[in-house]
């Protein structure tokens, strides 16, 4: 390999990608025109690209269905009412948005408190719940398994409750 080729070699890819400044690009174009070794290298880069594109398309083919059901799952996982949370984490910072919305938020807060107060005086509260904030919060009120052993646990994933009935009934 000639010295000139050696210096050009690391940037031939960038030249091929059209990512070099004009003056440099023209200089390399002239060299490649005249140099079979560098032309061959450009051909290899070109061939590699088309091979990668074909191969990658082949590798991820048949994923359209999986992606469309993935899409549905993503949408299912997005909570319906995001707007209120958004405001708290708004770009303008929590303090600013507090002031901006205080006219609405304060009366709302008071309302919520009053509603809660009335609610809890009228209704007998349900058994206490550990607030995990998980979408899968679940309380098992009662359980009958015909004498079988039952494992009751939560997963690490999204704190999902699992009721696992083990083995045969006591006889």
């Amino acid at each position: 390999m000639k010295d000139k080729c050696k210096s050009i070699h690391p940037i031939l890819g960038a030249w091929f990608d059209g990512e070099l400044p004009d003056h440099k690009s023209r200089r390399i174009a002239r060299h490649v025109e005249a140099c079979p070794a560098c032309r061959a290298e450009v051909d290899r880069i070109k061939a590699l690209r088309s091979l990668l594109q074909d191969g990658f398309a082949a590798a991820v083919t048949a994923e359209d269905e999986a992606l469309s059901s993935l899409h549905q799952r993503i949408m299912k996982r997005i909570p319906e009412r995001e707007t209120k949370n958004r405001k708290r984490t708004g770009r303008e910072g929590p303090l600013m948005s507090f002031f901006r919305f205080r006219r609405i938020t304060l009366p709302m807060a008071v309302t919520a408190m009053l509603v809660a107060a009335v609610f809890f005086t009228i209704y007998k509260p349900a058994p206490s719940v550990i607030k995990t904030g998980s979408v899968n919060d679940c309380i098992v009120d009662d359980l009958e398994s015909g004498g079988r052993t039952v494992l009751l646990f939560k997963t690490h994933g999204s704190a999902m409750t699992v009721i696992w009935v083990v083995g045969n009934p006591d006889t």
């Binding site: 940037i11 890819g13 061959a40 051909d43 290899r44 880069i45 070109k46 590699l48 091979l51």
Partner: peptide, 24 residues
């Protein structure tokens, strides 16, 4: 970006040589 791409291409050309029609 430029240097990673350069090394990645070098390596892939080496590995995929049997499948590259043009070239050496």
């Amino acid at each position: 970006v430029m240097s990673r791409l350069h090394y990645a291409r070098q390596r892939l050309q080496e590995i995929l040589k049997p499948y590259l029609k043009e070239g050496e």
